[in-house]
Write a protein that binds this DNA or RNA. Structure first.
Lengths: 350, 350
DNA sequence: GCGAGGGGGTTACACGTGTCAGTGACGCGT
DNA sequence: ACGCGTCACTGACACGTGTAACCCCCTCGC
């Protein structure tokens, strides 16, 4: 605007941000001394009066070290990269996600979320590698290839952790066994004598990562049950949007589908569908059993109370500690742990 | 390990990550040329054959630039710091939060979440300043002081944006008018003829940031109504934990409280309480009206359908654009915008 | 009196990058 | 033949920090 800014571009308010050199000048010592004092380096002895002068000078100038310069010199940072997806995840998952970040910060890591919008795995890995993170915790948004992992490790990542459906060599793979959720839910329904079982699959894009394995798990349960006394169970996928209209439409043609049970992906979808079924005159659980997942408190408020799959998720804290250990000792054996355990909580809707 | 690496430090797959100097060596040009080529600098002309050689060398070595070194030299980064709280926020807020991050990344910013666990405002600001972010979007976890803002700006932040209840000078303050939510809800109840109004206050620590202003808003509504025809409305705070036991306990002594309406902080708390009231034989809405907030889909599934306050939140996208504009032009006048608008959606519970 | 030793600092280099100011080589007009 | 301009590229510095290696001076022991 005013041309005076062109002449003196370095006039914010208190001018430029002070460096350790400024502190050194003010304290009347060398820059090295400043570094030693402010980092409490034990290998070098500095007298107490000097320490005080340095600290006071730093305080007076409002000196703040430059993290980038520091980690450039050090050759490593304490940054954990956490590529996260842009998907409407449920409360359980976002809780886990929050805890993870919280615990990492407690362990003195800097958590960086980073997107990889429509990038291929290798491009994404390249973008991540630019930041030279000390660890990468990939949440399954992109399926890392082996070369991508290689690139990340070469760029200084001491730990690469994948949370996904499949294992990636060279990483600590935490198997997020979504399939098991569908499996136990469906097995429970079959045990209760149900035979034609619908499985709700959200149409919400981005949820496929969760919904597909759950459907597969349901299919597995139906097949393995075929051998026992309870033979002939079938699974029918049911696309559903998360709104009343879609639920009513599905409930409207429920009788022609000839189903006697439904695993609804989620407690939220389950509640939505159950209400629509009741409004359409289908009795739950007599005519159709309904099972959700996540064990939300709200599911207990409906009548009948919603049966559900309770998911015991690994604590964010545990995962954070795994990260920390892998960073400390890069040769930690890539142990694969299962991220979640599932068990059915039977209430009244099944 | 093996001493041969000391003799030949240039082993691509093994060990060190290649720098632009390695690329230059392989391509047979100077490091400056590499920089020009890979950054497509238009001010300098490089012949096409040379460009190709450089690109191929970079490709072969798997060269990845070092973001920290780059921003050190450049004197600025494209990092947006997003200090976030460790609180169990609702779906609405976390949706907004996700969108914001997503849009910022789309605008080519690097989003960094950073904690400030129990730090005082000035300490937190110091920790943030170390990262030299180009913008800080504070979500009200810590109340920034004026000096803290000053420090951040001196350290290179071109935009400081606060989302909170109070305005901070020198920042773009987005007023998150939580009070208004309680106000419209309570006003609605008073208009409907209710007089003794309970206001649920979650005991969950960390939610006070939201619940306190809502309670205050409710009180304001009751007071301002005192002047009109509908005089004598009173507000009674009701602490509540998010579990059935707590809700049942509250419902058990409902009659002695003598309330004829309740604004329940949230749709989730509202659903919980409404169920408990019904189980205790209190009829809704005849005996007691219930109003929630957030307009969750699930609220429409209960009977009676839950009345609620619909919250129109500023889009994450809009906020991201404000950040971007403020970064581009640091002299953008600190406009204060209201982050959310509230209106009552009357259904059947009131 | 003189070397050893150590307390208290400093000098100098390295980290990886961007970019300004040159520097040859070459074509061209007079 | 010589100056001038353009092309294609290089040399050198700066960004802010950590740390190994060195240096000076004082004291102590013999």
């Amino acid at each position: 605007m005013s041309h005076s800014t062109d002449q003196t571009p370095e006039r914010p308010t208190g001018h430029a941000v002070p460096t350790s050199a400024d502190v050194a000048r003010l304290a009347g010592v060398s820059r090295a001394t400043v570094s030693y004092v402010l980092n409490n380096t034990s290998a070098v002895r500095i007298s107490e009066p000097t320490r005080r002068r340095v600290r006071e000078a730093a305080e007076e100038l409002g000196y703040v070290p430059h993290a980038a310069a520091r980690s450039l010199r050090a050759g490593h940072s304490r940054m954990v990269l956490l590529p996260s997806a842009h998907i409407p995840v449920g409360p359980l998952y976002s809780q886990f996600f929050n805890d993870l970040q919280w615990e990492l910060r407690r362990l003195d890591y800097t958590v960086v979320q980073y997107g990889s919008v429509g990038l291929k795995p290798d491009e994404a890995a390249r973008a991540w590698a630019e930041l030279r993170p000390v660890a990468v915790v990939s949440l399954g948004e992109v399926e890392l290839t082996e070369q991508a992992v290689e690139l990340l490790k070469r760029s200084g990542a001491r730990a690469v952790i994948t949370l996904g459906t499949q294992q990636v060599p060279g990483t600590h793979s935490l198997a997020m066994d979504q399939g098991r959720i569908g499996e136990v839910a469906t097995a429970h329904l079959i045990e209760s004598g149900r035979r034609r079982i619908g499985v709700v699959v959200p149409e919400e894009p981005g949820l496929g990562m969760f919904s597909r394995p759950r459907l597969e798990g349901a299919r597995r349960a139906a097949e393995s049950a075929g051998t026992g006394a309870a033979a002939g169970a079938t699974v029918v996928p049911l696309p559903l949007r998360y709104d009343e209209e879609s639920a009513d439409e599905l409930a409207g043609r429920w009788r022609e589908l000839g189903l006697d049970a439904v695993f609804a992906y989620n407690d939220e979808y389950a509640m939505l569908l159950m209400r629509a079924l009741q409004d359409a005159g289908i009795s739950v659980p007599e005519e159709t059993a309904v099972v959700g997942a996540d064990d939300l408190l709200l599911g207990r408020l409906l009548r009948p109370r919603l049966s559900t799959v309770h998911i015991d998720m690994v604590l964010g804290r545990e995962l954070a500690e795994l990260v920390d250990q892998a960073v400390r000792d890069a040769d930690t054996p890539p142990r694969s742990r299962r991220l979640l355990d599932s068990r059915v909580v039977r209430r009244e809707s099944s």
